[in-house]
Simulated assay, not measured.
Amino acid sequence: MHPPVPTLRPICTLSVELGPIREMGEGRGGKRRIIPIIGGTVTGMIRGSILNLGADWQLVYKDGTAFLDTRYAFETDDGALIEIINRGFRHGPAEVLARLAAGEVVDPTEYSMRTSARLETGDPRYDWVNRTVFVCAGSRSADAVLIDLYAVE
């Protein structure tokens, strides 16, 4: 007998403020960059503020695909600290990725930004995040990322 097909439940939207990109240059697998995470907000079922710490340690492949590898934290409005590690890919047509790199506002339907997230906390009120699988859909602007976070059920 097959298990039920998973569904997605919206949890929150992360509006992540970014600092200036730090270009590291070409590495073994592609262009390396560090993008500081300097703040932001969490809205939805979970509400809070993104802390001024963490970064996206990106690897950009020759075809323009970016491997996103972020680690940061937020504090809920009721005082819980929650760590988030979010990894995935942003890709699309070369001309669309060039517009994103130039800081232009690009319709998120023109490219794909999908990640999987792991959340962790020691706060018993949010213990459920420690055993939940999360997936995300995102969009990028010049100085921010908007991430819709969903629980897989």
Score class of each variant (00 low, 15 high):
H2M: 09
H2W: 02
V5P: 00
P6Y: 00
R9L: 13
L14D: 01
L18K: 05
G19I: 06
E23Q: 15
M24T: 08
M24W: 12
E26L: 15
E26R: 15
G27Q: 06
G27M: 07
R28A: 14
G29L: 14
G29Y: 10
K31E: 12
R32Y: 05
R32Q: 13
R32D: 08
I34T: 06
I34W: 02
I34A: 06
I35T: 15
P36D: 04
P36S: 10
P36Q: 06
P36Y: 06
I38M: 06
I38K: 07
G39D: 01
G39M: 03
G40N: 02
T41R: 15
V42S: 01
M45K: 12
I46K: 04
R47E: 11
N52K: 08
N52Y: 00
W57C: 01
K62T: 14
F67V: 11
F67Y: 08
D69T: 05
R71F: 04
Y72V: 07
A73Q: 07
D77C: 12
I82C: 03
I82E: 00
I82L: 06
I85F: 09
I85T: 14
R87D: 08
F89T: 10
H91T: 14
P93A: 15
P93I: 00
L97F: 05
L97A: 07
A98M: 04
L100E: 06
G103D: 14
V105W: 02
V106S: 01
D107L: 03
D107P: 00
D107S: 03
P108K: 06
T109W: 00
T109R: 11
Y111C: 10
Y111L: 12
Y111Q: 10
S112A: 15
S112I: 15
S112F: 10
R114E: 08
R114Q: 14
T115F: 02
R118W: 04
R118P: 02
G122Q: 07
G122I: 12
P124D: 07
Y126H: 14
N130L: 11
R131I: 12
R131M: 11
T132M: 08
V133H: 12
V135S: 07
C136W: 01
A137I: 07
R140S: 07
R140D: 05
S141M: 09
D143F: 08
D143A: 15
D143M: 04
I147Q: 05
D148H: 11
L149E: 05
A151D: 05
V152E: 10
E153T: 13
